[in-house]
């Protein structure tokens, strides 16, 4: 049951991030992800969405506050190296594929880096590619793939380690509308099938409402979460959801929240 709010998974407690050049990207950020949730983080560009995801992923460390992982044996805080306590997949804004590796080679990379034997890694990568609808494309190089296919390979790579938490940073921002809607539908299917927890960054109101159970709206200068909008619609959601009144109402609420967030800047 992925719709029910599960146990807390990870919590950002009054997190602040100040870069070496003095930029304060985040201040007093409070965020809770529960197991099985699909949560979107929405905000104007430069509000610190990417920074927040990187903190959760352990790619950067907060300068204030802490990232707390819940419910794992011995967890309760980050490991000494700031490493997340659960297996985690990350989809970057760009596909970030290695151009000299085929789609299959790219999808297998996390397993290869973890020391898995080559044939086993390739078999699991092939399964991950099939799960994102790229069963036949394993032998192609990134330059031979369309933008949408590259993003699918990137998602396959994030899923190949069977993570319980998937973080995605504006993954579909560069894609055309039709490709984006298809990938949204496939993402929801994967989320349910694999009982994932998804933290999804976007600057599209419609995308956030279509996908998520909760939309967290951020403001800039400094980056923080100012409002939360719950999307009270059951899953599975299909294209008909886009024409429903619940969807329209949620979009209206999120847009209003976003406008307030932008006004709060000055």
């Amino acid at each position: 049951m992925s719709e029910a709010a599960g146990a807390p998974l990870v919590r950002l407690e009054s997190v602040g991030k100040r870069f070496d050049n003095g930029t304060v990207a985040l201040a007093g950020l409070e965020l809770l992800l529960r197991r099985g949730e699909f949560v979107s983080i929405l905000g104007p560009s430069g509000c610190g969405k990417t920074t927040a995801l990187r903190l959760i992923a352990g790619l950067a460390e907060p300068t204030l506050g802490r990232v707390v992982w819940e419910g794992e044996a011995g967890a309760g805080e980050t490991g000494r190296d700031g490493a997340p306590a659960v297996p985690l997949g990350f989809v970057f804004q760009e596909p970030t594929l290695l151009p000299w590796r085929t789609a299959l080679g790219n999808a297998a990379l996390p397993l290869v880096l973890a020391g898995m034997a080559r044939p086993e890694a390739r078999a699991q990568a092939a399964a991950a590619l099939a799960a994102v609808g790229l069963a036949g494309a394993g032998g192609l190089y990134p330059r031979q793939l369309s933008g949408g296919m590259r993003m699918r390979v990137s998602i396959a790579r994030a899923l190949v380690t069977r993570p319980s938490l998937l973080l995605m940073d504006e993954p579909f921002a560069a894609l055309d509308e039709i490709t984006r809607e298809r990938l949204n539908a496939d993402l929801l299917r994967l989320w349910r099938e694999r009982e994932l927890t998804v933290g999804f960054v976007t600057h599209s109101v419609y995308e956030s409402v279509f996908l998520s159970m909760r939309v967290l709206v951020m403001a800039r200068h400094p980056g923080r979460i100012v409002e939360e909008v719950k999307v009270e619609a059951p899953y599975p959601r299909d294209e008909s959801f886009r024409t429903s009144s619940v969807y329209a109402e949620a979009c209206r609420q999120v847009s209003a929240a976003l406008r307030r967030a932008m006004e709060e800047e000055r």
Partner: peptide, 26 residues
Amino acid sequence: VDPAMLDLMALYRARPGQVLWYLRLP
């Protein structure tokens, strides 16, 4: 090397030798 690729390597805890072999050399 694209910094995002280095993030990718860091995410999967690649050792320095692996970063060299799988990313920097190619």
